[in-house]
């Protein structure tokens, strides 16, 4: 199963092209980094891959077929700001179990404590919340994970904790990961190869 973006281009309305002719191929188990200046559409490209946005031109295919319009999306995305990605009126157990029921093994691996499940999102720190966002994105049918500045807001220790958990799951399940980050050292540590978003117009 591959994730393939072919000649993808995007712009808002009749505005200038944010990017055009973006070609990215992600194999199962492959970890690829994307780097580039802010404001060039890296996040928008991620949103297209995860099905939140449609490309203005070009196509995105998973396993040779277009992205599914309904059902569980095989490409899941984790965003930079977990506090903006969790429903403030839901307690954490509801946030966690919205898509599927993560097992205890996964929760332990990500360091999610049972006691946190009865809290509201605002009662957890960014690092704690982000663990939930990662857990809920790792459903059994997730084939590709898009990590858009996923650990940028976190301290070094939490960052290492979360990435070690994800890498072991990715290896076990042959999951492909796209890593968007400005931190070149982290990129070197994690990725098999790196795509420079500057190469596209």
């Amino acid at each position: 199963m591959q994730l393939e973006a072919k000649d993808v281009g995007f712009r808002y309305g009749d505005g200038p092209w944010l990017f055009q002719r973006v070609n990215v191929m992600l194999e199962p188990g492959e970890i690829v980094g994307i780097t580039g200046p802010s404001g060039r559409g890296k996040t928008t490209f991620c949103r297209i891959l995860a099905g939140f946005e449609s490309p203005v031109e070009g196509t995105v295919h998973v396993n040779g077929a277009p992205l599914p319009k309904s059902g569980y999306h095989p490409v899941q995305m984790v965003l930079q700001h977990p506090e903006k990605a969790t429903n403030p009126r839901w307690k954490m157990h509801k946030v966690l179990n919205e898509g599927y029921q993560p097992d205890k093994e996964l929760l332990d691996l990500l360091g999610i404590e049972q006691e946190w499940l009865t809290r509201w999102p605002h009662e957890l720190s960014g690092g704690e919340l982000q663990r939930f966002c990662v857990a809920r994105a790792l459903g059994p049918n997730t084939r590709f994970l898009i990590a858009d500045e996923m650990t940028t807001m976190l301290d070094a220790n939490t960052q290492a904790q979360i990435w070690h958990a994800i890498m072991s799951i990715a290896k076990q399940r042959e999951m492909g990961i796209l890593v968007v980050t400005h931190e070149s050292k982290l990129m070197q540590r994690l990725c098999h190869r790196v795509i420079d978003f500057n190469e596209f117009d």
Binding site: G111, E123, E128, A156, N157, A160, Q161, H164, K185, R189
Partner: peptide
């Protein structure tokens, strides 16, 4: 020390757990 060692350019190893509430 744990923070320093956890940096990707250093050892990238973490200590378990999280800080107390």
């Amino acid at each position: 020390k744990a923070l320093w060692r956890a940096l990707p350019q250093n050892e990238f190893i973490s200590i378990p757990g999280s800080q107390p509430h």
